[in-house]
Structures are given as structure tokens and as C-alpha cells.
Amino acid sequence: MNRLVPFLSRYWAVLLLVVVWHAWVTLGDLNSIVLPAPLPVLADVVTHPALYLTNAAQTMATALAGVAIGVLLGAFVAILAWASRLLAGLLTPLGLIFSSVPIVALIPILARVLGYDISTVVAIVAVSAFFPTFVFTGAGLRDLPRATDDLFKVLGATPWGRLRHLVLPATVPNVMISLRLTVPEGVLAAILAEFLMGRSGLGFMFREAASRFAMERALGTSLVVTLAAVLFFTLAHRAERAVKARWS
């Protein structure tokens, strides 16, 4: 009882959704091809753990690899733009144009250029993570603690010493913000890419199941996708909070 009350107060909306879903299917007497009830969906997940786990693991690994590449590249290019006014003038408009192109529009182009395999999915996720990181890291590089710039000048810091001991550490919280923003985005981009052009992973699994009207399987995939996205967001959010506490 002591644990039940906080659980209910936190997740009542989710439970309500499941109850409404169940009521809608039962009262409307819907065919499972239109919409299956919650329990058969859950049963499909529980009875096929290996299938769901391997596909989920693949999607998560793809998303993580893509986010890692995108964040590292975004931070690196932000540092280049910070170091050189010429590069900043070159890269910033490009960044703005690319960040306003929807990822859905980029997927067919990238797939045609890079081929229809898993490395393309990684590339798509990396592109989705690149621009938010570029923008947030760029802002962090210019946001230094008060008077520290003067301090480093009086201490006789070289440009490299200033970058290493002041500018890079100062921007770590902003890199964590980009991570928190791009990780759920990366999971979404990975699934979308798998759905549109993949041959494996949760996105492909959903498309394959939906195309043969295996709605329990399709909705089971959605359920796993949702859980994974929530898990990743929670982890990224915690990491950001921990870094923020250490940095202030």
C-alpha cells in the first residue's frame, strides 16, 4: 500500500490510457486486425522475449552509435567555428539550413547515397544529433564564468591552455543538454530510418508486422519502443543533472 499510492499518483495517466484502450476494444467489439486489446499485445511481448530483445538491442545500439558520432562531430565542428571566424561564417548558415530540414526528408536521400544498410541508419541518427549539439556547444563555448577570461590573460595562458583549462570544461554542461535533447531524438530517428529503409530493428519489425496485419506484434513493438525512449530520456536527464550539480 505504501508503494502503491506514489506509483498511482505518478502513473495514473498511463493506467487510465490502458483502461480506456481496453474498454474501447471490448465495448466497440473491435476485430484484432483493427485494434487488439492491451493484454494480447503484452502477451506477444512476453512470449517472444528473444525476438523483441534482439531487435530492441540492435535499434538501441544503432541509436547510441549514431548519437555518439553526431554529438562528437557537432562538438568538434562547434570548436572549429569558435576558433576561426572564417569557419564560423561558413558553418553557421549551413548548420541553420540543415537543422530546419526535417529528418524524414533526408532519409531517402541519404539512403540513396550511402546504401540501404545499417550504417545508413547510424548516419541518419548522427545527422539528427549533429545540429542541436553544434548549436548548444557553440553557445557553451562563449558562456564562461565571470572574470575567468581576464584571469587567464593575467596568468599568461596560451590559446591552447585557455581552450583546454577554461573553454572546454565550461561547455561540458551544454554538451550534456545536447545529449539529453538528442538521445530521444536519436531513438526516434533510428526507428524512423528502420521503418522507411531498414531490414532489421524495431522500426522494420513494426512495418513488417503491420504489413501482414499482425497488430499484436506491431503494437508490442510500439510498446517496446516507448519504453526504450523513456528509459534513454531518463538516463540522459539524470546524467545531465549530475553534471550540472558538479559544474555549478
Binding site: P145, D150, L151, P169, A170, W247
Partner: peptide, 11 residues
């Protein structure tokens, strides 16, 4: 040098 703003690195 020491400034009015301590300019310590918070991390």
C-alpha cells in the same frame, strides 16, 4: 591577480 569576482572555476 585576485578580482572582486573570485573567478574560481566552479568544476
Amino acid at each position: 591577480v585576485a578580482f572582486q569576482d573570485h573567478a574560481l572555476l566552479p568544476w
